[in-house]
């Protein structure tokens, strides 16, 4: 009976996990016109995987130098960059507001504020406590500048698409896929098979010409890889994945502890259960 119970419990658990995961996976995205999605192995997936700090830093550079001219990170403050697990975390500065890298980054942005003396609008350099300031004054301006399309917030983008990391990576790289006759793009639109419907109002962003920019190292001793299109795409995805799910490392380590704890508890309860029910056995 003992084995039977354990087996039944395991089957029940297995079925529950499998069916719910099945539901989750079945909702994956589809792609048009024979384009084969590149499925990269993202090293932060899996049970223990976490982000790579240097890749996130390079990814931030791509964001700041390319994507920033159109996209904001609505839900990020500069200080988040220096949080534990973040791209510019430094254990010498537990409080990210003191982190010099974070301070420098913040200062590169202009933040609209109010002059406390006379109430007039002023623009000042950012500080770590500021949120990333919006790129456009309002959606009307955003649409006006971008042919009527509004560049969406990127800070949750990787969570806001099915298989978001693959999605953004492929979106960056798929522009050179041949456009089928069935998709007609108007002016200001580009063909991209990763987008639903194949049309996107954003032109190709990561260009193959060498010298768009080169990765320079933020920390000493680092040997930055060559800034190829694939490398830049992978790095910006790493940064955006962190920005969409900044608690990933904390969550996974808490998960490991909880699982071990629950497993031990289950074993102890199993033994207690055996012992208590054994009282019902006839004494021999």
């Amino acid at each position: 009976m003992a084995l039977k119970t354990v087996r039944n419990l395991m089957i029940a658990g297995g079925v529950a996990v499998a069916s719910l995961t099945g539901i989750a996976i079945a909702s994956g995205g589809s792609v048009a016109d024979g384009y084969e999605m590149v499925h990269k192995h993202w090293h932060w997936s899996g049970v223990t995987g976490t982000y790579d700090q240097e890749a996130m830093q390079r990814g931030y550079n791509v964001y700041a130098q390319v994507c920033r001219s159109c996209h904001n990170l609505d839900h990020l403050a500069f200080r988040h960059l220096g949080d534990k697990g973040g791209p510019f975390y430094d254990e010498r500065y537990e409080n990210p507001n003191d982190n010099p890298l974070v301070k420098n980054i913040a200062a590169e942005y202009e933040v609209i504020d109010v002059n406390p003396e006379d109430g007039s609008e002023i623009s000042r350099p950012g500080i770590p406590a500021d949120m990333f300031p919006p790129v456009y004054r309002n959606t009307a301006e955003a649409a006006y500048v971008n042919n009527g399309a509004i560049p969406p917030d990127l800070s949750v983008m990787v969570k806001a698409r099915n298989n978001g990391a693959d999605y953004v990576y492929n979106l960056m790289l798929a522009y050179d896929h041949p456009q089928p006759d069935s998709v007609v793009t108007s002016s200001g639109q580009y063909y991209n098979p990763v987008m639903e419907g194949g049309k996107i109002a954003m032109g190709p962003q990561l260009q193959p010409q060498v010298g768009v920019f080169e990765y320079q190292s933020e920390t000493e001793g680092q040997n930055p890889p060559e800034a190829t299109v694939e490398q830049m795409a992978a790095d910006v995805v790493e940064f955006l994945a962190w920005s969409a799910d900044p608690k990933l490392a904390e969550r996974k380590s808490a998960g490991m502890m909880s699982m071990v704890y629950l497993l031990i508890l289950a074993l102890l309860l199993w033994l207690s259960y055996k012992r208590i029910w054994a009282r019902l056995k006839p004494k021999t």
Binding site: V17, T21, K159, K252, L262
Partner: peptide, 26 residues
């Protein structure tokens, strides 16, 4: 406890898998 293990598995490893990606668009 066995149920909590299934719960914890989703909670810690696939927290958004049971929802829709679209709901992370405002």
């Amino acid at each position: 406890t066995v149920f909590l293990m299934i719960f914890a598995f989703f909670l810690f490893y696939l927290p958004d898998a049971l929802g829709h990606a679209d709901n992370l668009i405002k």
